[in-house]
Every structure is written in C-alpha cells, then in structure tokens.
Amino acid sequence: MFRQLRTALRAGIVTEPAAAREIERIGERLASEIARLFGRSLAIRQVDAGSCNGCELEIGGLTAPHYDVERFGVHFVASPRHADCLLVTGPVTRNMAEALRRTWEATPDPKFVIAVGDCGRDGGVFRGSYAVLGGVAEVVPVDAVIPGCPPSPAALLAGLLDAIGRQRR
C-alpha cells in the first residue's frame, strides 16, 4: 500500500511548470480568461461521438501529472448537468448524433461546445462516409475547433483559451 506512495514522493511533483514556456504562458492566460467568465472554475464534459479514441488519449493526458490542467481550475465531470463546456471528439457517426444532441440539451446555460480534432471539424479521415455526419457543427452549435489528428495536449490548452477568448468577444 505504501510502495506507490513512496514512489510518488520520491519522484516529486512532475508537473512541467515552465518547461515548455509555451504552456505556462498559455496556462496563465487561460486562468485569467476563465476567471473572467467562470470565476476560475470550468467543468468539462467530454463526449465521444464516434471517435477512434486518439483524441481521448490526448485529452486524458491533460489531467495527467505532466500537463495537470486541474491547477488552472479546470476539471472533468461525469454528467452534462454539471458541465460548462462540452468537448466533443469524433466525426459524429449517425448512431451518436441524437445522443450528442440530447447531451447538449441536458447541459445548463451558459455553455459552449469545442470540437476536437480534424474529425470534429469536418469529419477528418472519415469525411464523406455514409456512416458519419461530417463534423460536430452538423448537430450542435460549435464555438471553437481544435484541429489536429490528434491535437497534442499543448494544442488542446491553446484551443481552450481561444474558445473562451472568442466567447468574450
């Protein structure tokens, strides 16, 4: 039981503070933007609308010790009722279209939607297939897009900031 604890304590805090100065600058801007809109607290509900899970792995990296998005007041929630932002991945397959729309309806205002990845933007590599609708904007109003296949966690952070900045305008 204590072996894990010992390993973690020996490793220390691995969150990259200013390693990529990019991230830190983005992070601070993110924090102040969130502060203005949501008072330093953002709850994200991630929705998988038929993605290959590559974007999910990168999003998972956001909460890992190296990127640690929680230090900026952002956390992931299980229910859309608790969420402020929907992070949608995938090209929106026909099977998931209605589910995505109901999830958006279940989220209380004020809310915004971020489409993640090339699939979320316009269908990505699956564009034109009979099984997909071709991008999240086909189903719910999208406030921001983070392109990439898949986008790195640093790009995700930048994209989040962009979205919130656009909201402000």
Partner: peptide, 28 residues
C-alpha cells in the same frame, strides 16, 4: 492528494470558485 501523486493540483480555495460559478448557472 494531488501533491502526493506528483501533480501540482488545484488551489485549496478552488471549491469556493466552483460553488460561486454554480450559483450563476441555469438549473435543468
């Protein structure tokens, strides 16, 4: 808990921010 697993973690006064934000949201 976050520090013990090697993360910087949220600020200790984060729950206040969460509660304040929730008060301003719509109820479904």
């Amino acid at each position: 808990k976050a520090r013990l697993v090697g993360r910087r973690g949220p600020r200790p006064w984060q729950p206040y921010a969460d509660l304040w934000k929730l008060l301003g949201k719509e109820v479904v």
